[in-house]
């Protein structure tokens, strides 16, 4: 493998990896406050891309681009918060333990079906705001670099949010000890809804910024969902640093597999990674083994 092939795999792999890392972080913020993994995250990412397709003109300028970003972020903030309401809806039943799995999966099915009704299996093409960048003489979509910057941006912002804002601190408190947080007077439901909303913001910006390089169609959400989750499992569920490292690993490895064996094996390789990590080190690189269970 030549040096520019390697550069190509690295740059594109890290760019794709940034998407996975961002999906991983959107998982984390909800899972840390409520123990819920949102199975609709992949479909939501694609939804942001579809919205970008509708809003952006063929040659967007920065004003429109930024306005569209804000608009889509606001949309998904509201939408995912509403999804949070449905998910946290108090279920008075003996079978409620798995309810979130089912409701989030149902939302994912509904979103994909809706996108399919509109666009069939065709991919939506979204124009890029910046021209391609030349890396080792190879034209590389600028969206990959924007995505890497976005991943760093959200990593820093979420860290700041958890450490410096009251809501963020409350979220950390809930993550560490739900009962103690309740006793301390934290309105748990409200905080959990905010977490859902923020995960919507992360997914909206990722889907929007990444739209030129994301495969936006009805069937692709699940692939992104699984890659994002695999990144998270590798890094350690709940850890954003883990999501960044895991995302980069999954991105580069699956890009290498696509380059070497063909794109059709990309998801297969990701699945192999997921199973291997679960067998060898289920708590991930940065994950902590659970404290006292009994």
């Amino acid at each position: 493998m030549s040096i520019d092939e390697l550069a190509l795999i690295l740059v594109r792999g890290l760019g794709q990896g940034a998407i996975y890392a961002l999906i991983g972080m959107s998982f984390n913020i909800v899972v840390n406050s409520s123990g819920i993994l949102n199975f609709a995250n992949g479909a939501l990412l694609v939804l942001a891309g579809v919205l970008a397709y509708f809003i952006l003109p063929a040659t967007p300028d920065w004003t429109i681009w930024i306005l569209a970003a804000v608009g889509i972020a606001a949309c998904l903030f509201v939408f995912v918060s509403l999804q949070g309401v449905l998910t946290l809806f108090p279920l008075k039943s003996s079978v409620e333990q798995h309810s979130w799995l089912i409701t989030t999966m149902a939302i994912s099915v509904i979103l994909s079906a809706g996108i399919h009704l509109y666009g069939g299996s065709l991919a939506f093409r979204v124009p890029s705001i910046l021209p391609p960048v030349s890396v080792f003489g190879l034209s590389t979509p600028s969206a990959y670099f924007l995505l890497m910057a976005l991943a760093v941006f959200w990593f820093v912002v979420i860290r700041w949010f958890h450490q410096k804002t009251f809501t963020g601190l409350a979220m950390s408190a809930i993550a560490q000890d739900l009962d103690a947080a309740k006793v301390a007077g934290i309105s748990v439901k409200r905080i959990q809804l905010v977490a859902f909303g923020i995960s919507g913001l992360v997914l909206a910006t990722t889907g929007f910024v990444g739209a030129p390089v994301i495969n936006i169609s009805a069937d692709t959400g699940i692939g992104y969902l699984l890659s994002g989750f695999t990144a998270l499992v590798i890094g350690g569920l709940g850890s954003n640093l883990g999501a960044m490292v895991g995302g980069a690993l999954v991105g580069v490895i699956s890009m290498f597999a696509a380059y070497r064996f063909g794109g059709i094996y990309q998801d297969t390789v990701t699945m192999g990674l997921l199973i291997a990590v679960l067998m060898l080190r289920p708590e991930g690189i940065f994950g902590l083994a659970a404290a006292r269970k009994v």
Partner: peptide, 24 residues
Amino acid sequence: HYRLLIYGVVALAVMLAFPDGVVG
């Protein structure tokens, strides 16, 4: 072609309103 959409909506509605399902 609305099949999947119907599945999703029905499953969501059942989970929210009748979490034990039809038979339950």
